[in-house]
Simulated assay, not measured.
Amino acid sequence: MKRTTTAFLGTSVLALVAAASLGTGSASAHPSPAGRGADRTVTLSAQLDELNGSGASGTATATVRNQNIQNIDVHAHGLTPDAPHAQHIHYGQEALNECPTLALDDNNDGRINTVEGIPAYGPVVVSLNTTGDTTPASFLDVTRFPVSDDGSYHYSRDNIAFTRVAGTGYTGGGGTAKQIADSIREGEGVLVIHGVDYNGNGIYDFEGAGASELDPNLPAEATDPAVCGVLKVDN
């Protein structure tokens, strides 16, 4: 399959990701953040380390105030060259809110796919697109994610609003923008970049790892996580 430049978005896929986060039974539940001044401005940073032997790495910084990401910058390198890379902030009230390890490789195929990683990093709460909608509804709209230039990209975007996200594990039908923003501000958000060229042929195809668990019409190379880092509070 040639590099995908077509949006691959489906409500059924979104439902799958949300349902997977609720069905894990993993992780100890996190108490709702006390707030510690919900209107305070917090700077978060993450060291992005490789997953699935991608060889990729990077850094991210974000400034969060109220229910808004005032600015976020992502610098990544070592990615699949000249290919789109979906990137998101993940969070789940019942997730570990950390990067996954091969201990979550349920089918023992030697790699972590997106759904297998959900007990660790939780469902998508923000899509880090270059333009337009940044809600989880856009989590696989590849036409609006960064494309690596020779394996690297520098992403920056301002004024990203948190929104209500169902399936984030809060009791009583929660998952409000305020609850999620408070949790991210407490240092529990996980930034994940997807896209791994397993067979090294320069494109996302089915030869490397078969079909994606999110959509059988997509190669797993396009959706598997490549790098991950926790957005921690700067001291």
Results as ranks from 00 to 15, higher is better:
V126N: 06
D109H: 06
E186S: 12
P136R: 08
D141K: 09
Q87M: 12
E207A: 15
A76H: 00
T61E: 13
A19R: 04
G23C: 08
P136I: 02
A60T: 05
C228Y: 03
R3W: 01
L104R: 09
P100E: 03
F139H: 08
P84Y: 02
S156Y: 02
N97S: 13
A161I: 11
H75L: 09
L14C: 01
G53T: 12
G110T: 08
N52V: 10
D234N: 07
L9E: 12
A27S: 07
H154V: 10
Y153F: 15
T130H: 08
S156R: 07
T130P: 09
R144V: 15
Y91C: 00
H77S: 14
T4I: 09
N97F: 09
G202M: 06
G132N: 10
D105W: 04
H88K: 01
N66P: 07
A181R: 10
A161D: 13
D224P: 04
Y170R: 05
T176G: 02
I193K: 06
S54R: 05
R185T: 12
V74T: 01
A19M: 11
C228G: 04
V165M: 10
H88D: 05
S12E: 14
G78H: 00
E94K: 14
G58F: 00
G167Y: 06
E213C: 01
L102C: 09
E221N: 05
A181W: 02
D49H: 12
P119V: 02
A18K: 15
A222G: 02
D105H: 04
A62Q: 05
A46T: 05
E207T: 13
I193D: 02
H30G: 11
L128W: 02
T63S: 10
L51W: 04
T223H: 02
G151N: 00
V230W: 08
I184T: 07
T43E: 11
H30I: 14
N107E: 10
N66L: 06
S32H: 13
Y91V: 04
A226K: 05
N107R: 01
T143R: 13
T61K: 11
T5W: 03
A83V: 00
T4Q: 12
D224N: 14
Q47H: 13
L79D: 01
V142T: 09
D141S: 15
G229F: 03
V227N: 10
H85L: 00
G173E: 04
S12P: 03
A19S: 12
A15F: 00
L51Q: 10
V13L: 11
V227F: 11
G172A: 01
H85P: 03
Y170D: 05
G122K: 01
R111L: 14
A34F: 02
A56Q: 03
N71Q: 15
